[in-house]
């Protein structure tokens, strides 16, 4: 059996990327920030995806995280990056915990659509509420870190990458615990899991809450990297669709996959908009079909194949 080197790779790779960011041009640092922020949400969706659950509404938590940062900034003048991040993640986590009581009873398309419905209710409310920025949203000030207002975006990049490393390590560990292993078994046969003596509802509730915390954190970090929030880029169902797309693109094989998948997505989008602006949906849709048909393990399956043939 192969030894699992994931945590080492995450740690060393993460540190190298932080160092690389110090010398990389601005646009690369920006792409990395967007990619890693979004990857946090994918990490949570990966856990659900392994369990056979696809949420077409996680923009709800992503948006909650992002808007919490906006409200903290504008209403309360909170600038500290950690307070904003924790605020966003905790609020989304709390919402996920509460919604989880309902959601843990749903599967398949019903799970997907109830999530969509809830996220679209929030979208509908924000779009029509002037005090929540309506369709325009809010601009957000650059966060301070330990009380210092940074000159560049690099310190924020370091924070985001560190959060990404820690989250990847935590989820990697979680997936090795007994409760964390209860993904494929639940997807394959819930009746058996119950008869073995574990509550499927509790297991799903925990996974769902975790995914909400991660999506909330992702939204908060994304809001700070972008410097603004608006409903269409934070809560609309297209955002949820993007998150699902990146999850499939990444593949469920490893906690590193979401980071690679998110970066590929960022690059794909940047170039697609430059080269063929009218073909974006075609590219996304085509990639979707290609992956589902020819690469069910996503990009990660390519990488792990490569790793196996070289070792």
């Amino acid at each position: 059996m192969l030894r699992d080197n994931t945590s080492k790779v995450v740690l060393i790779g993460g540190i190298l990327i932080i160092l690389f960011g110090a010398v990389a041009p601005n646009w690369i640092v920006n792409q990395l920030m967007f990619g890693f922020s979004r990857a946090l949400a994918i990490l949570g969706l990966l856990v659900l995806w392994r369990t056979g659950l696809v949420s077409f509404g996680h923009a709800f938590y992503f948006g909650l995280g992002a808007y919490t940062v906006a409200i903290l900034d504008i209403q309360l003048g909170v600038t500290d990056v950690f307070v904003r991040l924790l605020g966003g993640a905790c609020l989304a986590g709390l919402a996920g915990f509460l919604v989880g009581f309902i959601m843990r009873n749903y599967r398949d398309i019903f799970f997907a659509m109830l999530n969509t419905a809830i996220s679209m209710v929030l979208y509908g409310i924000i779009v029509k509420t002037e005090s929540l920025g309506s369709t325009d949203g809010f601009a957000i000030s650059l966060p301070t870190i330990f009380g210092v207002a940074p000159e560049t975006k690099y310190p924020l990049f370091v924070v985001i990458t560190t959060v990404a490393i820690v989250s990847a390590l935590l989820i990697n560990f979680y997936l090795k615990t007994t409760i964390g292993r209860l993904t494929t078994p639940i997807r394959d046969n819930e009746i058996r899991v119950e008869y073995l003596g574990f509550s499927v509802a509790h297991a799903i509730h925990l996974k769902y809450t975790m995914s909400a915390i991660l999506a909330g954190g992702a939204g908060a970090l994304m809001a700070m990297s972008l410097g603004q929030v608006d409903p269409d880029s934070m809560i609309n169902w297209t955002v949820s669709g993007e998150l699902v797309f990146i999850t499939i693109l990444s593949g469920p094989g490893n906690v590193i996959a979401p980071f690679i998948g998110s970066l590929v997505f960022e690059v794909l989008r940047t170039y697609a908009f430059e080269l063929a602006p009218h073909l974006w949906q075609l590219i996304v849709g085509g990639t979707f079909l290609t992956i589902i048909f020819f690469l069910p393990g996503g990009i990660w399956s390519l990488i792990s194949k490569l790793g196996r043939s070289t070792s």
Partner: peptide, 27 residues
């Protein structure tokens, strides 16, 4: 070619198709 696969995966495939067909309409 998908009937034996997960329900959710088929939904995603039709979603992919939908996106492709949207742009084909524009073309």
């Amino acid at each position: 070619h998908m009937y034996h696969r997960d329900e959710v995966l088929i939904v995603l495939a039709t979603f992919g198709l939908f996106l492709v067909l949207e742009d084909v309409i524009l073309i």
